[in-house]
């Protein structure tokens, strides 16, 4: 490797990392927070068998999981202006990523809800708690702990998928890399460099996942 290329890589590292920290991570965090709300709602209405809403949730999950994320981004960002709905790139990306991840996470949460023994719900009702109280205090906390590893994987997937937002002109770190590459023609080196930054981010997230799992498993393991 010549010193010129090394200089470019050192110089570009900051230019890639910065949009990573300023755009990729916030995009991931905000989208996932919203996805989680959508997922819990969509899972709960199915679990509790709420009429109409249950079917609505099934329909939503069917459509979102059955179509490509990139196509969803195009529909919202390039398609909706045709019917008068024009969104800025960042909000459009947030909307698509949260709706998309929400559909997958909804299935995870629903399965986790179903894994809580129904006897605990009955026991809760027998001590006078309402169905909603039992859900909030007994079932959901257990389900979220069960779902945690899966949900953590979703966060990591989502973080990598935010690179697709470059297609709708969000200046996240992949877009930043593309610009430098177009200018310098050092495609191979730069795309490997951005891959390494993504790897760095996923590694940190995986570490956080491990730590989280350890903390959450307190009641599931025998201490003695």
């Amino acid at each position: 490797m010549d010193s010129e290329l090394i200089g470019l890589l050192i110089d570009s590292f900051g230019k890639i990392l910065l949009p990573g920290l300023a755009m990729t991570l916030p995009l991931t965090a905000i989208s996932f927070a919203l996805a989680l709300i959508i997922a819990v709602a969509a899972a709960l209405v199915q679990f509790a068998n709420v009429r109409v809403l249950r079917q609505l949730a099934r329909f939503y999950i069917w459509v979102i999981r059955g179509t490509p994320l990139l196509v969803q981004l195009y529909i919202v960002f390039y398609g909706l202006p045709n019917v008068g709905v024009t969104l800025e790139p960042f909000p459009a990306a947030i909307i698509v990523f949260s709706i998309n991840t929400g559909a997958y996470a909804a299935e995870t949460v629903r399965a986790a809800l179903e894994s809580v023994p129904v006897g605990q719900i009955e026991a809760g009702e027998c001590v006078g708690m309402s169905y909603l109280q039992v859900m909030r205090r007994i079932v959901l906390p257990q389900a979220m702990r069960t779902a945690f590893p899966s949900l953590a994987n979703s966060v990591i997937s989502l973080m990598k998928d935010t690179s697709l937002a470059a297609n709708i002109t969000v200046t996240e770190m992949f877009m930043a890399t593309q610009r430098i590459a177009a200018r310098t023609y050092e495609h191979l080196a730069l795309y490997i460099e951005v891959a390494i930054v993504y790897l760095l981010f996923s590694t940190v997230l995986t570490k956080l996942q491990r730590m989280g799992e350890k903390r959450l498993s307190a009641y599931q393991s025998r201490k003695e």
Partner: peptide, 20 residues
């Protein structure tokens, strides 16, 4: 709800809240 507040129920499989 009112009746349940005046009764207790003990199940064959205990049904304790696992997260408590």
């Amino acid at each position: 709800a009112a009746i349940r507040k005046k009764t207790g129920f003990v199940f064959q499989s205990y049904n304790l809240f696992a997260n408590k």
